[in-house]
Amino acid sequence: MYISSSPHIRKDWNVKKIMYGVVIALMPAFIGSIYFFGWRAAYLTFLSVVTAVLTEYLFQKITKRKITAFDGSAIITGILLAFNIPVKSPWWLPVVGSFFAILVAKQFFGGLGYNIFNPALAGRAFVMASWPQIMTGRWSAPLHGSISGIDGITSATPLNLLKLHATDPAVLSRINSPEMLKNLFIGNVGGCIGETSALLLLIGAIFLFVMRYADWRISVGYIGTVFVVAWIFYLTGLTPAGPLFHILSGGVFLGGLFMATDMVTSPVTPAGRWIFGIAGGLICMLIRVWGGYPEGVSYSILFMNMFVPLLDRVRPKYLGEVKK
């Protein structure tokens, strides 16, 4: 006979189910990346995942910890890191990035549940700082479209177009065109491996929200704020691109749906999550308009990760709480 404390029934889910659920949710965008960028996208993602799992396994083996390398969380980190690099990256880039993500950003902080920063984003920041020319200079066009999302312009990704050619009237006239927005939505533009297709990311994310593997508040807060702020900036002339262009370009969907919503590195209270998402979206837009990078998603989320312990203090009122 067993003795244990109540309750004696448990909901039929666990950490593994959540983690593999997220992996499944990333599959539409993964398959899309192969369609847009060819088999090399799958190859780099594979290397990244294998490195992530192997790093976690070896670290836990060497330090004599419980082996949790196969719980799915390392796979997510591997996929997300690969999604955040260009398809023309050398094979060792995802390997180094994944290694850093798991070893430094995750295991050195105590492993799953204890890391402050989203491991994949920390890995991306590491390779970005180390090899910026690879991370920002080697874009390639999707197999069935043009790099910029606009026919005839083959010099830059949509966001670079905005940053570097924002004064060119030929560009300006087409930046908010239906053609551009359609290509951005579908993902038929240049960009990192897994970030281009808002549509496919959204399909995966809806699955996450329905299964409650991610909190929609963060995503709505983040993407909604980018939309609203971009609209204000557009109307006041601070950016030539409209709000739809801003939310569909770069990694807003990948970051807002899959990386800001990482449970471990986001706040636990509903109010904290709203603030986290909204402040993240705002920072993203500030970087895009005034920062040195065309893209602000990853740094905005990493920045907000730091405030999570503070945001956790925005606790709900308990039932019948008396004011003191």
Partner: peptide, 17 residues
């Protein structure tokens, strides 16, 4: 497992704890 901060417990607590 270690807490993964999923916040399910915060969401379901009927006392708002």
């Amino acid at each position: 497992y270690p807490c993964i901060r999923c916040s399910s417990c915060v969401d379901v607590c009927p006392m708002g704890l």
